[in-house]
Amino acid sequence: MSTTTLPPDGFTPAPKLADVLPPRKERSKLGMFAYRHPTIAVGGFMVSLFVLMAIFAPLLWTVDPTALAPARRTRPPSELYWFGTDMLGRDVYSRVVYGARISLIVGFGVAICAASIGLFIGLISGFIRAVDAVVMRIMDGMMSIPSILLAIAMMALTRASVENVIIAITIADVPRVSRLVRGVVLTLREQPYVEAAIAAGTRTPMIIIKHILPNTLAPVIVQATFLCASAMIAEATLSFIGAGTPPIIPSWGNIMAEGRALWQVKPYIVFFPAVFLSITVLSVNLLGDGLRDALDPRMAKRI
């Protein structure tokens, strides 16, 4: 193919394809991935930025976020206090940076717990009729209560702590995940490859592990990212109304709650945590959106 032969008289040789086509862009593997899935790349990059911020909070020019300085309260943003100080003189910048820890712990904690519990319940009730009838009615009952209300009720039963916030939001979110998984399981168990596996003598536990579970993971992962984002908002909401993270631990919700009284005169106390919360939720949602597209098997293998 590459051997060039002399053209017969009267004909000019056709230009080589390589000269006509624009040069092919060489991309690294990572670059190629980012090019194909821009939302995952952007969302993933921003989420990891926030995770790094939370982990390395002490190194990011912060001071003790709980240190009181009544003499320097409600200072506007300046070179010394980047985001200003609150009504107790605490550095808002440090509080916001440390507050990322709570939001991310709650977000990821709820996503992981709710997804795994929901996956378990969904798999069982998708396969065992008797369990399905009972469990799904309970889930229906729980879903009829708005999840934030359910979480507030849960928090009212216990003392304020980060673990309890995670548990409360998880309980409120589990019905949604288990419904999703159950639906996926019900369609998967009718799939010919599952029937073929039954015909091939595979036992039920192995069918669940090998054929059902791997195919439910994609929607669950996508759902988990959305749960993560909604849990961050739920945590902030709970903290804002004083039913969440205890006030001694800075979280974006309770920074905003404390700044609320001064909202009209010192808006920056509420502004900065709100912006951080919005951007974090946005980037987690971007990641989830991208994953949903990328993990959909019908869209996955386009060339």
Binding site: P192, A199, A200, K210, P214
Partner: peptide, 29 residues
């Protein structure tokens, strides 16, 4: 006795688990 009766389904796109390699699909029985 199941090993004596096997099946080939209509839709070749849904009768193979998309997350298994051919070796695992064929080796399963």
């Amino acid at each position: 006795l199941r090993k004596r009766i096997q099946v080939v389904f209509q839709d070749p796109f849904s009768s193979l688990n998309p997350r298994q390699k051919l070796r695992d699909i064929i080796a399963e029985p």
